[in-house]
Simulated scan of single mutants.
Amino acid sequence: MLAIVLMMLLVLVISGGVVAYVAYPHRGEELPVAPQLGDVMRKGVDSLPTIGDYEDIRA
């Protein structure tokens, strides 16, 4: 039972982080409550490899 509760809390924390990232740093805005958290999320995403725009792939 404890494992289920802990996993559900972990899922809620991760989903809250995703929502916070999409709502602010992804659009280029600062998080109003914790700007340091937005900087950390932006640095983490910048370090990951991503696929470019569709025009970049077709070339």
Rank of each mutant, 00 (worst) to 15 (best):
G17R: 09
V19Q: 10
E29M: 10
D53P: 01
V22I: 13
I51G: 04
V19G: 09
E55F: 15
V45W: 00
V22P: 02
L6C: 11
Q36K: 11
I14D: 00
G16T: 07
D56C: 06
V5Y: 11
G17F: 14
G17S: 12
V13L: 13
R27M: 08
S15F: 13
E29W: 13
V18Q: 03
G52W: 06
V11L: 13
A23P: 01
V19E: 09
D53I: 04
G38R: 02
V19K: 12
S47C: 08
S15Q: 10
P35G: 06
P32M: 09
E30H: 08
P35F: 03
G44C: 03
K43I: 01
G17W: 08
D46W: 02
A34K: 13
M1D: 11
D56P: 00
D46R: 08
Y24L: 09
R58E: 11
L12H: 09
Y54M: 02
A3I: 15
V19H: 11
G38P: 00
S47R: 10
D56A: 12
G17L: 14
Y54T: 09
A59F: 10
P49D: 04
E55N: 13
Y21V: 01
S47V: 14
P35M: 12
A3E: 15
G28P: 01
Y21Q: 02
G52M: 06
V33D: 07
E55R: 15
G28Q: 11
Y24W: 15
M1A: 15
T50D: 04
V13W: 12
A23I: 15
I14L: 09
V45I: 10
V33L: 13
L2M: 12
M1Q: 10
V18R: 02
L48Y: 04
V18Y: 04
V40C: 02
A23V: 15
T50V: 05
I51M: 07
P49L: 12
L6R: 15
L37Q: 03
S47W: 10
M41W: 01
A23E: 07
V22E: 05
V40T: 06
D39P: 01
I14E: 01
P32W: 10
V45G: 03
M7G: 14
G28K: 11
V40S: 06
L6V: 11
I57N: 04
I14M: 05
V19A: 14
L9S: 09
Y21H: 04
V19S: 11
M41K: 00
V22D: 08
L48H: 03
R27D: 06
L48R: 07
D53C: 03
L2D: 10
L37K: 05
E30R: 14
D46F: 03
V22Y: 01
H26Y: 08
A34V: 13
Y24N: 07
I51V: 15
S15L: 14
D53R: 10
V18K: 03
G17M: 13
A20N: 04
G16F: 02
G44T: 02
L6W: 12
G17K: 08
G38F: 01
A3G: 07
K43H: 02
